[in-house]
């Protein structure tokens, strides 16, 4: 082992310095390109006279934030986002855990077709089918219904969630459950008292994963929710932009930042759970 690492150092060390500088320089330039559009968000939100270009504010101020932080402007839409994403994540996780249990624990004849079907479902371009979804919702009289929207969003996130949850559940050894079964526990009891507590981190990852996706979703609530008092932040930011966007760039940026903070925080939390590989860990096995 040590021989390997020594030979590696001696082989690459002479060339490392020149190439290293080049590599690091190139990487930093690329990082700057990626940061520039986001820098506008931060700087404009702190600039009372923001324009569309990145610029250091001549007068730093929090006035943009205080202007948008009103109940009807941001607080209600953000609360709607919480309800929508929380509801979606809750229903998705509940259904996914229940569905993953038989898929993980029994050998069923429908298992293979079901899992392939689920995998197939993850590939469907959901945004592409919002037009038929709209007319289906009109027919079912579910348009502008928070519940209907939540169920639809839960259904679209279910395939990925079931896939991830099953993979997490496969990691939980079955021996403990077998002991409980011998003692007369039912499978639902063992699921609740043994499996779920053991895979809590995995469930948290699936929950946050679904929550982040729902929180960021613009198109689905944009099409399915019509009354402003039901619309989540994503849609009300878009409406705000349509009404005042041409003048109030600073406020637009401030609102956008307020709306982005929760998902960035949640993403960091998930990273801590998984040590960096995020969605891939549960989603892609092998």
């Amino acid at each position: 082992m040590s021989a390997v690492s020594i030979s590696r150092v001696s082989l690459s060390a002479p060339r490392r310095n020149g190439v290293g500088w080049l590599t690091n320089g190139l990487l930093l330039i690329l990082a700057a390109c990626f940061l520039l559009p986001m820098a506008w968000l931060v700087l404009a939100s702190l600039n009372a006279n923001a324009t569309l270009a990145v610029a250091l504010p001549d007068q730093w101020s929090l006035s943009n934030f205080s202007k948008v932080l009103t109940p009807e402007q941001t607080l209600l839409p953000l609360w709607n986002s919480v309800v929508l994403s929380g509801g979606t994540a809750l229903i998705t996780v509940l259904c996914a855990v229940l569905a993953a249990y038989p898929l993980s624990r029994y050998s069923l004849r429908i298992k293979k077709p079901f899992l392939y079907g689920i995998l197939f479902g993850t590939g469907l371009p959901v945004t592409a089918m919002m037009v038929p979804v709209y007319s289906l919702f009109v027919t079912l009289n579910l348009l502008d219904s928070l519940g209907g929207t939540i169920f639809f969003m839960a259904a679209t996130s279910l395939p990925m969630a079931i896939w991830m949850t099953k993979n997490f559940m496969d990691e939980v050894p079955i021996a403990l459950e077998e002991a409980a079964w011998v003692d007369g526990a039912s499978s639902m009891q063992t699921l609740r008292t043994i499996v779920v507590p053991l895979m809590r981190p995995g469930i948290a990852v699936v929950f946050i994963f679904v929550f982040i996706q729902a929180w960021g979703n613009f198109f689905v609530p944009f099409v399915l929710l019509l009354s402003p008092d039901k619309q989540p932040a994503a849609v009300s930011i878009f409406n705000f932009f349509g009404q005042y966007g041409a003048v109030a760039y600073g406020q637009l940026a401030a609102f956008s930042l307020l709306y982005s903070v929760p998902v960035v925080v949640l993403y960091v939390v998930v990273q801590k759970f998984l040590g960096g590989s995020f969605a891939m860990a549960g989603a892609v096995k092998g």
């Binding site: 990626f34 506008w40 404009a44 932009f241 956008s256 960035v264």
Partner: peptide
């Protein structure tokens, strides 16, 4: 680099869209 690239991906799509709009607009960055 990792943080910069991933940040653009983690942002909600509407926010990423506004940031791109500002970046590419006629009077943009």
């Amino acid at each position: 680099v990792g943080a910069a690239v991933v940040a653009a991906w983690v942002l909600p799509e509407i926010v990423a869209a506004f940031a791109s709009y500002a970046f590419f607009s006629d009077t943009g960055t």
